[in-house]
Design a protein around this nucleic acid. Sequence first.
RNA 1: UGACCCAUGGUGUAACGGUAGCACUACAGAUUUUGGUUCUGUCUGUUAAGGUUCGAAUCCUUAUGGGUCAACCA
Length: 553
Amino acid sequence: MTEERSLNFLEEIIEQDLQSGKHQQIVTRFPPEPNGYLHIGHASSICLNFGLTQRYPGYTNLRFDDTNPTTEETEYVDSIKQDVRWLGFEWKHERYASDYFDTLFNYACKLIDRGLAYVDDLTPEEIAAQKGTPTQPGVDSPYRSRTIEENRDLFLRMKAGEFPDGARTLRAKIDMTHLNMLMRDPILYRIKHAHHHRTGDKWCIYPMYDFAHGQSDSIENITHSICTLEFVPHRELYDWLIKKLEIYPSHQYEFARRNINYTVTSKRKLLQLVQEGHVNGWDDPRMSTISGLRRRGYTPESIREFCSRIGVAKRENLVDVGLLEFCVREHLNKIALRRMVVADPLLITLTNHSGEVEWLNSENNPESETAGNRQIPFSNQLFVERSDFMEVPPKKFFRLAPGQMVRLKSAYIIRCEEVIKDDRGEVIELKCTYFPESKSGSDTSGLSVKGTLHWVSRAQAVPVELRLYDRLFSVEDPTDSEADFKSFLNPESLQVVKSAYAEPALAEATLTDRFQFLRQGYFVLDKDSTPEKLVFNKTVGLKDAWAKEVKKG
RNA sequence: UGACCCAUGGUGUAACGGUAGCACUACAGAUUUUGGUUCUGUCUGUUAAGGUUCGAAUCCUUAUGGGUCAACCA
């Protein structure tokens, strides 16, 4: 049962805390802001936070950081919950920072009473101007020395709605010359007369991230508050507030967010792609969102495996999307039902076949003995893949060519006897003969062929739509240059095959089935399917050694 | 001209002062009724310079490189 995998730096910290008796159990939280859909980067954080409390005693909360009513919506709350569950995790408590607005307000009053916070009348521009720069100290606001009574009165009136948006803020009184910009009297509360998705119109002042996140952690007795590296400078303020408020001392730990090449993982950028119509919604199968990956056919198992393999550390990184693809292939290879679909059909007529339909047996999955078999029809007119024929084949082309033999998967060996072309010289049909004694499973022909092709019987073929995807961006890191990341969108990221031919068994496909279309890739039924027209999304292609060979020349 | 974080093959991640390992990728081969899978093998790495030590990827110093910080966003 014991894993051999070595500990990451957070597991090391936790094991020390447990051994030293600092904690008997650990409490973590996954804290999304409900202003967008979760993406693969969040999956990493989810697996980390929930994985830690599966491994060690304790539990994980789901907490929505909903302190900015102008960007947050219930739609996002619902999608986030669905995605976390789909990934296979269940939270102990569902919480919202907005649950704590009353407590937070009281905390703010406490700081005022202790002379540690003040109401400032400066405009955003003025505050920015007196804040200084990373290399220059800031200067005190003229309102910094208001009396406690005055601050209290003003803050209450802010809450009462007496002032318009942006008129005043509540700021912590720390040090305007601090080397850490975040310690230069950070804003704690701002006025926003906005409707909140949970508290409605009860509040017109809302706490800032720094005055909500750490306090919420503390209220929930979070022992290990795990976030990404860009919050490192916030830790000093996180600790300062907890100390001055004398509340439960949660601790913040930071790890490097995972970046993946040929995509973007930024809610802001993903939102742009959706709003500007570069993709068809948050769950477009090309998106790096959890919902997009789900629709694309990725499994929760494969995403969890990916997160486990890329690990947790503190250095900048750009993970190869090839690893994600490896993980999904690895899983799908074990569970996907094998089916035959011809995307670009070339007609084959067997000149020595009667035309009577014969039902042949084929395994659903050679990797799984329990997957069983299915029947596929065989007759004298078949479709094979156009790319599996070449009139003038190169060396080592183990497929169809004039005079050349191949096996049809789970069926018979055939030989190409004649090539039929239309007026334009386009190949439209192959006349072939088959060897009746070469039937799969009872082959007495003595023939041996190097290539095996997928095929479908023309008469029973079911027309289906195939959606083939390529990477959304044509460069590894679309955010790396000055240029707009959208200028690197791959124009060929979606290719639709309107009418491919599928074997009849596929007519019964359901949304939860996973398929491997032989020699092509893994596919999943799309929600756009209708009884008349099935639509399949390509999850990922099979490795293609021949394509590599061709490329080499 | 500041503070903070970081630095191991192409990529990701281990080695906790004692043989630089694992995975992905790439390449070569075997098997194969999927040019898939599986199996075998090969290539490639400690940013640099000093110091401490019998011994340094690991500890110290400096340099170099990358990242973060000046939203009433989170």
